[in-house]
Amino acid sequence: MTEPKTGSGAKGGATMTVMTQTIARILFLPALMTGIAVLIKGYADVGDGFNAGVIAGLAFLLQYVAFGYEEAREKLRTKYLPAIGFCGGLLLALLTAFVPLLLGKPIFTHSPAPGAEVIHIGTFELITAVAFDVGVFLMVFGFALGAIDIVARATSRNHAGGSAEEREAGT
C-alpha cells in the first residue's frame, strides 16, 4: 500500500492517523484469517458462517476507517464485493438447499448422509453443510461490507460540498 494521505487536522491528529493506519494494516490479514478460521471450525466449535462474515466485514471496515473510503475502496478492490457476496452467497446457499430435490431427496439433505464416513482435513469436514455455511459467510460478508460501503458513500456525497471542518466532524 502507498503512503497514506494525512488528515487535515493538527499534528497530533496526523500521528494518530499514521498509528491507526499501521495498526489497521497489521490487523487486516489476521482479522480475515480469524474470520475464515471461525468458518472452518464452525462444525467443531463455537462459530459459523455468520460470525465469520461479520468478522471479515469488520476487517474491511477497519481499513475504511483508517484509510478513508475512497482510498481503501480502490486499493482493496471492494467495489463489486458486496454484489458478489450477495449473489454468490445466496445462490450457493440456495443450491445446497435445493439441489437434493433434483436428486429426489428432500430439501436440505446434506451429504454424506448421517452416520456415513466423512473426509476430515484437520477439524475441517468435507460435507455439503459446509458449502451452505460458506454461502452464509459470503452473504453476511456482502451485507457488512455493502452496508458500510453505502453509508460511507452517502457520507462522502453528503460532505462533498461541505467545509473541511464538517468533513472532519463527519468521520
Binding site: F86, C87, L91, F98, L101, G104, I107
Partner: peptide
C-alpha cells in the same frame, strides 16, 4: 416433491435480479 423446486424458482430469480 421436486415441485418445491418450482416454488423455489422465485427465490433464485430474486437473488439474480438483485444485482440486475
Amino acid at each position: 416433491m421436486s415441485l418445491v423446486f418450482l416454488i423455489g424458482l422465485s427465490w433464485f430469480f430474486a437473488v439474480i435480479l438483485g444485482v440486475l
